[in-house]
Design a protein around this nucleic acid. Structure first.
Lengths: 325, 325
DNA sequence: TTGTAAGCGTTATCAG
DNA sequence: CTGATAACGCTTACAA
């Protein structure tokens, strides 16, 4: 079903149909005839033809790199909401961690003429973005810092610092930090550094601090803490880089308490304010980020870029809330 | 950057460039010249022009309706994996529960000429799908039963039945079931009916069974159980329609045990095998579904439909695993 | 207010 | 093997 066929049925020109759809000059009479014809035929205009003609799609591509689920859906929700309200569409691609999957996704978005692209939580391989540069397509990066690029992210360092400061550690405390690993900039090094800085501020001597590395999943947190206990088990605090890891830590602690009598239960803290963890284990200290707001800010930045209202590169850092401490 | 410009640079016709891209007859010499020109210019072909010409996009649209996060990402992962391997692309839209959002998403997919559409977990409004019928675009529904439509979903009834049967309830047990509500077919009535049937089989008399309704979130589960306790608090089992609700139930029970001395802690069960819940509260009885497999099956069904190898409507029901009971 | 026609970037046909 | 060309469905000068 095309423009032309509808036009024929309504006894008008295809230009009239186009005008009907896009709000141009049109007599009331033709307007009605066209509406009827569209209704009757179930005509759906071809976005591809329109995009081809206009050389823009009014759509922004969103690449979601596998990470914490709730993060993604929150950010995506905020992004879509704002974009839609601003008259843009969104096209998502969910990429796992297969080699090259994100590159493929980015490329296919470019082929479809998206007007801008938002990369969520992916640590972009340097060469990848060249694609967009050449095509003059604005890029916004969410959740990661990137030099000379537009990005919006959370203050992971600051949040971890505040969290550590507010745990109530003293000079006598023995503290373990379960790191998410080097692969993840924001979950990983930012939080670890902030946490250690916060401990220092709280006066915990460094020889009473143990850092151990896991991944960001429940199981990885569990095994990391198991390993931790193999050496000693008199920690006052076990702080984890994510709530999932904290859940794993809690499991490890429970098993530990079962087998050996212990004096102190270590206090566990996480990062992310997972509702299930908070309900079952809580309140435990953790950090809440407003993911939806993050999506909104990213969308705002993108829309400004698209409208050409901004030239300079912006790097926005969003706040946080320490809860349960 | 277009076909033609690349052709010019390489000193060939635009047809040759097209052949280069799609693997047609081409001398080795020109092949090299074209490759060089593409490399040099950073040319990216226009998918819109191709789709316009070919009248098909080799892409399937995936509508994700807001629900449990882990469900969505699992299904989406399976779907994309299979589709990609079969030579199709995927285009996702994440729709919240705003009025009409899903309709908009579906329509915009149609406008972009997707070849098929997969609806996840949405209870489609009857009229919505008419759009696709008229356009002769195959539809696969995931997570819901739909008459005369292709769908793949889990055996929620059977899973709830088995779960109830294996909890170890007796004629003397007092059991509460926290329902997710009528709005959700699969989470809601299917699980409730299965669970009640399972209890009957286990010999629990119906006057010892209480059904109460919440939503599917942690908070809703929490409030539902709070309300439950307002009347009586001597339940042996509190079974919830989702793991999130189970987390809320656990919180409610914890608060309850704090304020009033009780003889028996009710056993809580959930649905979904959430890793955090399982680590922190577990093992508690729950049901594991293989979401990724579900995505794969749906993709398989879609690809068969697309290839025209299947005419009849298929309704696939996937299995489950009861864990922790 | 309306219609005609050109052109967006591809690919397929067809003649060389 | 190769190149010219028409057509895909739409929007928008431009002319009426």
């Amino acid at each position: 079903m095309t423009n032309k066929e509808v036009a024929e049925l309504a006894g008008v020109s295809s230009a009239a149909v186009s005008r009907f759809l896009n709000g141009g000059y049109l007599s009331e009479e033709k307007r009605e005839r066209i509406a009827a014809a569209i209704e009757q035929t179930g005509y759906v205009p071809s976005a591809n033809a329109r995009i081809l003609r206009l050389k823009k799609s009014d759509t922004v591509g969103i690449i979601l790199t596998k990470s914490d689920e709730s993060t993604l859906s929150g950010v995506a929700t905020g992004l879509e909401k704002y974009l839609f309200a601003a008259g843009y569409g969104a096209s998502l691609a969910y990429v796992g961690d297969d080699e090259g999957a994100d590159f493929n996704a980015m490329r296919s978005m470019l082929e479809r003429q998206i007007d801008g692209i938002v990369l969520i939580s992916s640590a972009p391989v340097p060469g990848d973005l060249e694609l967009f540069e050449r095509a003059r397509v604005p890029v916004v990066i969410v959740g990661q810092h990137a030099r000379n690029r537009n990005c919006v992210r959370f203050d992971n360092f600051g949040a971890a610092y505040d969290l550590a400061s507010s745990l109530g550690c003293t000079m006598e405390s023995r503290v373990a930090y379960v790191d998410a690993g080097k692969r993840y900039r924001s979950f990983g090094s930012d939080r670890r550094k902030g946490f250690l800085a916060g401990l220092e501020r709280a006066g915990v001597p460094s020889d009473r601090i143990t850092v151990i590395t896991g991944g960001f999943s429940v199981d990885e947190g569990y095994y990391a803490v198991k390993k931790l206990f193999a050496t000693r088990n008199d920690y006052d605090f076990i702080s984890c880089a994510t709530d999932s890891m904290a859940a794993g830590a809690i499991k490890a602690i429970r098993e530990q308490s079962g087998s050996i009598r212990r004096h102190k239960q270590p206090r566990v803290s996480g990062f992310g304010n997972d509702p299930i963890l908070q309900a079952v284990a809580g309140p435990i200290p953790t950090v809440r980020f407003d993911y939806e707001e993050c999506g909104i800010k990213a969308a705002e930045m993108m829309v400004d870029l698209l409208k050409g209202e901004v030239k300079s590169v912006a790097s926005m850092v969003l706040g946080y809330e320490v809860v349960g401490a």
